[in-house]
Design a protein around this nucleic acid. Structure first.
Length: 557
DNA sequence: CTGGGGATGGGGCCC
DNA sequence: CGGGCCCCATCCCCA
């Protein structure tokens, strides 16, 4: 009798809409981490579907599911189910997957799905088999789902033998907007090739890896040779098939090196200890990028509310999390998912950085002087404009200018002269420099305070750079640099601007960037009075002056 | 079109 | 090993 009042397709349409929104990340307000995959969804929907998830979403924007209980592939199916009411066909090995779905559904407390699975299993007579767990290694590739998943794209991941050697670039696939976390355990690869057109596997469904690097670093770097032509001496990466899938290199890295891993308390504390897909590092000999990718995965960034789009930071965080959690399924695991988002809490300490404590640059006197302009505004009261050389503060740049000019040139010349006389503390003969920096490089004149730094420096003289990027092959003298470089491949930008959402790969860059919003321009040209938010721009500006092209402050637009 | 500034990305390297 | 800073390159915008 109420027929007239009801639009029969309403609920279906609604679901459809929601699912569409989910695939696009629209209004998604929660991220679910399952092992190495990230899923976005809507809290409301999850809460309405799963009692377990409901209990989690109220407190967290980031959920971490026990991958022992739910594999990424299974969770994808489940999420699809939640949003569509349909359980996709389980592909090869389907029954087992069905069992895993059942187990996961029970775990997540989704009665409808539990019932459905049971029914299906009973129908197929395999209900008794289900083991309650999942078969992470078997699920993998066959699965196709609409679920937007952010997975590591370090390559073909478990790209054992069945796949042709993959161009390093291919796996990254950042163009599709998804970050592929290491699918190290057979997590469904998600190249579009595997994604049936009929499913919502559209590129935009994943996270927007980068605003500024759509073709991004990866696109730029990957296609380029991974074996840099100029560095033939490198012990050279073994034949490609030996090379680890990038994922392995990145996420797996060297288990032993993952001290970042939770100290045991965390479920699945040892990452990849027995990941069957792990392969050996490309170059056994040079100190391999231990943990390279992993390190960056373990880094966390500014904490911020989840936006509709999963940002790389989140992704990184997720990846980090799941990395932590990643462990062979056989390992004993807690029965309940550990949603310790807090553990992943961004390292807030990184969110703010004065970044203003620049030391004197080793550059020319001009640069050095410019460096003096760095200061800590907070500590100066009203006299924000400080003359570093003498430490005197001034309330305005004009006053500072006036003051600075008084000893500006003198200062410059003085320094220059001083340097000429004593090229550098560490350069001259025995003296204060040698005492302060007793560790001298045998290849050049530099010296350092401690042997470690010297060792580090000496690597810069090596013909062979010991840290190759597992993605493009580019080599670095420092692991940290390589890690940072890797981050650019992965589009991981942990540092987000609160004001505009722009993200950066480095804290320092964020600090710089924030000045755009604050209007702070702490770097001032002592020649023309031009102010700059970034020191490097002041420096380049100063070069213009030094090139003999004086300009007036007003000349800038 | 050009020059200069604003802004960003990446690598080197020291602490 | 990460942080921080320097340098270089580059892109974009505007006058």
């Amino acid at each position: 009798m109420l027929d007239a009042m009801e639009v029969p397709s309403h609920s279906r349409q609604l679901l459809l809409q929601l699912n569409t929104q989910r695939t696009k990340g629209f209004l998604c307000d929660v991220i679910i981490v399952v092992q190495n995959a990230l899923f976005r969804a809507h809290k409301n929907i999850l809460a309405a579907s799963s009692a377990y998830l409901k209990s989690l979403v109220v407190h967290d924007n980031l959920l971490n599911l026990d991958h022992e209980m739910v594999s990424p592939g299974i969770f994808r199916l489940i999420l699809d189910f939640i949003y569509t009411g349909r359980l996709a066909e389980c592909e090869p090995g389907g029954e087992q997957s069905l069992g895993a779905v059942l187990a996961a559904a029970s775990y997540l407390q989704i009665p409808g799905l539990v019932a459905l699975c049971k029914k299906k299993l009973k129908r197929s007579g395999k209900y008794c088999h289900l083991r309650g767990g999942y078969a992470p290694y078997k699920l993998g590739r066959g699965l196709r789902a609409a679920t937007p998943v952010i997975q590591a794209c370090y390559s073909g991941t478990p790209r054992p033998v069945d796949l042709p050697p993959v161009e390093p670039a291919a796996p990254l696939n950042t163009q599709c907007g998804e970050l592929y976390a290491s699918a190290s355990q057979g997590t469904p690869l998600h190249p579009h090739g595997l994604c049936p057109p009929e499913r919502h596997c559209s590129p935009p469904c994943g996270l927007d890896l980068s605003k500024k690097s759509p073709t991004g670093p990866s696109a730029q770097l990957l296609p380029t040779d991974r074996l840099l032509p100029g560095e033939p001496r490198e012990p050279s990466l073994p034949p490609r098939h030996d090379s680890p899938p990038v994922s392995a290199g990145l996420l797996a890295g060297h288990p032993a090196s993952y001290k970042d891993s939770p100290p045991g308390g965390e479920p699945g504390g040892h990452p990849h200890a027995s990941d069957p897909f792990r392969s050996t590092p490309p170059c056994a000999e040079p100190p391999l990028p231990r943990g390279d990718g992993r390190e960056l995965m373990y880094r966390w960034m500014k904490h911020e509310p989840l936006g509709p789009y999963l940002d790389e930071g989140e992704a990184e965080k997720e990846l980090e999390r799941e990395e932590k959690a990643e462990s062979p399924p056989a390992a004993p695991q807690p029965r309940y998912p550990s949603v310790e988002s807090n553990d992943l809490e961004p390292d807030n300490s990184t969110s703010e950085d004065t970044g203003s404590s620049e030391g004197p640059s080793p550059g020319d006197a001009l640069d050095r002087y410019c460096n003096h302009l760095g200061y800590e505004p907070e500590s100066l009261g009203d006299n924000l404009y400080v003359c570093i050389p003498c430490g005197k503060g001034f309330p305005s740049s004009e006053q500072l200018n006036a003051h600075v000019e008084a000893h500006n040139e003198e200062e410059l010349y003085h320094k220059a002269a001083a340097e000429q006389a004593v090229p550098f503390l560490d350069k001259g003969g025995p003296g204060l420099g040698d005492i302060l920096r007793p560790y001298r490089c045998s290849s050049c004149d530099k010296s350092y305070k401690d042997p470690a730094t010297l060792r580090q420096h000496e690597k810069t003289h090596w013909l062979t750079r010991p840290y190759p990027c597992t993605i493009c092959g580019k080599k670095f003298t420092q692991r940290g640099t390589m890690t940072r470089h890797m981050r650019s491949h992965l589009g991981l930008k942990p540092f987000a601007c609160d004001a505009c959402g722009m993200r950066f790969t480095r804290q320092y860059r964020l600090t710089e960037h924030m000045r755009i919003h604050s209007g702070e321009k702490p770097y001032e040209c002592q020649v023309c009075g031009g102010k700059f938010a970034q020191q490097r721009n002041l420096i380049s500006h100063m070069k213009m002056h030094s090139a003999g092209r004086p300009s007036s402050p007003g000349s800038s637009r």
